[in-house]
Write a protein that binds this DNA or RNA. Sequence first.
DNA 1: AAATATACATAAGAAACTTATGTATTTACT
DNA 2: AGTAAATACATAAGTTTCTTATGTATATTT
Lengths: 117, 117
Amino acid sequence: MYSSELIKGTLRTIVLNLLKENGRMYGYEITQRVKELTDDKIQITEGALYPLLHALEASEDLETEVEFIGKRQRKYYRLTKQGKATSKKKIDELREFMETLHILLDANKGTSHGLIN
Amino acid sequence: MYSSELIKGTLRTIVLNLLKENGRMYGYEITQRVKELTDDKIQITEGALYPLLHALEASEDLETEVEFIGKRQRKYYRLTKQGKATSKKKIDELREFMETLHILLDANKGTSHGLIN
DNA sequence: AAATATACATAAGAAACTTATGTATTTACT
DNA sequence: AGTAAATACATAAGTTTCTTATGTATATTT
């Protein structure tokens, strides 16, 4: 597990990306998928996820469909048309941001400073 | 400029990294260096930076030295021995986190979903 | 039968920013 | 000479976005 202040700001994009790639998913499934894809390194808490899903539904980036498995409900989320655009924007932005971070972290490497770290 | 929720969680590491590479820097210099290195894409606000520097000094990761340029003071910050260890840890963590994010963002690419984005 | 996993949800609190504001000195422009 | 912009510090109020804690209920495994 990462010291989780890093997740801040990226969770929304992670969720939007998963929904873009998978069509539709329900909340619990998202937590498990992230856990599995990241080899337990990122663990989405339910207290963060559910309010986020509700907010994305309220902003009309996501739409829902409730299904019942026996007596237990499952709430599936999928991207709306608007949500697909939001998703693309956020993902591009995150990729760019990471590139910029790499530039920052690699700046001055190869000068007299920081040769041996 | 990025929609800045992405900066959250990375600012501390950016600052620690700059100090590691540059030996010593003062606050205003840090804001300008980041602006310049990122081609204006990341702009550190003073309201975020100064409290952070104070916190890092309080935790003994940074130590200070005040100099006067004319009548105007400049407060130089440098990593302590502890700060160098913290710095390394945080930078490694951020690099790992970014790798993990790449895995997440690239998951399912090349399957029937998301081929055309 | 009890523990664990599945599945949803909300509330209180903490962390880490932004925005706004303040002070003061120095440099550049007109 | 006077004004604007840049340099350099600082703090406070407010917002966003998480964590931690708690709650409810069903289904599966041991």
